[in-house]
Nucleic acid binder design. Structure first.
Lengths: 109, 109
DNA sequence: GATGATTACCTAGACATTCTAAATACATAG
DNA sequence: CTATGTATTTAGAATGTCTAGGTAATCATC
């Protein structure tokens, strides 16, 4: 099982989806994605944190400082209403793209 | 039916797949993709031509100048053996990614 | 109480890919 | 002779991800 290449543009969708479940801090988001993907998707911190800042700036997520169960300070992110809309839009785009790709890849067989 | 956002990294796969069918010149590749995707995927020229140069440099495709049925000079690209391998690899990566994404998007329902 | 592993965040700079926006040139239709 | 379609080329901007560092606190272990 080789490591997967993440495609540019999918990280936002993945993060929004994770936060739709429950509020999480950055480190926990990375862990969560690793688990759900069965170790196949490894999000680098240098990708994740800047992505979180961008999304907060766009109003899709909000954050507050909190203490984790491990007793450490962490910035916990949660979805906003705009974020829920964005999630729906990106999910729809993703599904449309996979449809088109299936046509393209399958065509001629 | 809105226009789809192409994800960074999928263009090579799409082009390789198109050339697996038959040799084509750049303009025809763009048309072909538009048709197969039912007008949903519009590849810009500024994306396509640089992508073709990159792929030729990597040895995945080869080219020769030829005359089209419309009587014009055109650079016709075709898959190399390495290109066929690359196509298989990228197709496998794409399929693995859609599997993982399906898990992520579906999880918790 | 030193050491190392884990948790948690931050950031600069490199890199790759796609897009916008232009230009060139030839063919054909009107 | 003008507009439209065919066909290629390229510069530069925009975007997003990664590499590769850094800080700091907690916990287990020796």
């Amino acid at each position: 099982m080789t490591k997967l290449n993440l495609l540019q543009g999918t990280l936002d969708l993945i993060v929004l989806r994770a936060l739709a479940e429950q509020p999480l801090h950055g480190y926990a988001i990375a862990q969560h994605i690793r688990e759900v993907s069965q170790q196949r998707l490894l999000i680098e911190e240098g990708s994740l944190y800047p992505a979180l800042y961008r999304m907060e700036k766009k109003g899709w997520i909000g954050s507050r400082w909190d203490t984790t169960d491990k007793g450490r300070r962490a910035r916990v992110y949660s979805l906003t209403a705009a974020g829920r809309e964005q999630l729906a839009a990106e999910r729809a785009n993703w599904e449309a793209l996979t449809d088109v790709m299936a046509r393209i890849l399958g065509q001629g067989e």
